[in-house]
Design a protein around this nucleic acid. Structure first.
Lengths: 114, 114
DNA sequence: CATTCAATTCAACTATTCTTGAAATATCGA
DNA sequence: TCGATATTTCAAGAATAGTTGAATTGAATG
């Protein structure tokens, strides 16, 4: 019964600012981006970004770690792949289609997420 | 600026009943399922299903066609692939990962959706 | 043409989401 | 420790989402 967590993940992505933030993080790679950098890139208030990024984190789509005064957020590729796999599961009654997504950027495995 | 349509698609999927309905349609294949069959499978009121399936249709995730008294809904695989492609675009700053999804069930191309 | 079946639309209500600014928490440097 | 920076939490309001049953539209059957 993982459908509830997929609903949360999709709901987390189903908002203009959060989708944009997630895509920035996906493109930024495992290094991630600071909350402030995201707020500035998206041109929204810091408190608004906190609200949105918390939902992405709560849905398991991003991880966070502190770096000095900043908090860096990074996309969780495994979670993203899980959501996609769930959507396409048994696609077309089992006909061969929809390859499993397997995104393993170079430094993902060595990363340690607090 | 396709992000708005992706937000709508994700929002359409970010709900328990709609996610379940979409998955049933994905698994049902191009033949699709009648609105009544979906309502029964999901155990929700017909008016509730109408409300939800309309959002999936509005987001472009499902197509509809009439068959006698019933209206059959079917998943739109191209739209699904588009959403996933958008999420993973330029993943990891361009590192080779995330193969493009290419779901082409046997009869999809010959289907004519009104 | 009247009846029945399938699905949608409507109105009303409750619940959740998003935004904002002010206050609080945590880290760093002098 | 004090002040500055980075981020989160809180409270309150406006907007949107989800549910229900009743009324409506559209297609098939006699």
């Amino acid at each position: 019964m993982q459908s509830a967590s997929v609903v949360r993940a999709l709901g987390a992505l189903a908002q203009e600012h959060r989708l944009a933030a997630f895509r920035l993080l996906v493109q930024a790679g495992p290094e991630g981006l600071a909350a402030g950098a995201l707020a500035e890139a998206l041109d929204i208030a810091p408190s608004s970004l906190s609200f949105h990024i918390a939902q992405l984190a709560n849905a398991g789509l991003v991880t966070q770690r502190r770096n000095g005064r900043s908090i860096l957020y990074a996309a969780d590729y495994a979670a993203m792949a899980m959501v996609m796999g769930f959507l396409t599961e048994n696609c077309c009654g089992g006909a061969a289609c929809v390859p499993t997504i397997d995104c393993k950027p170079a430094s993902t495995t060595e990363r340690d997420v607090a």
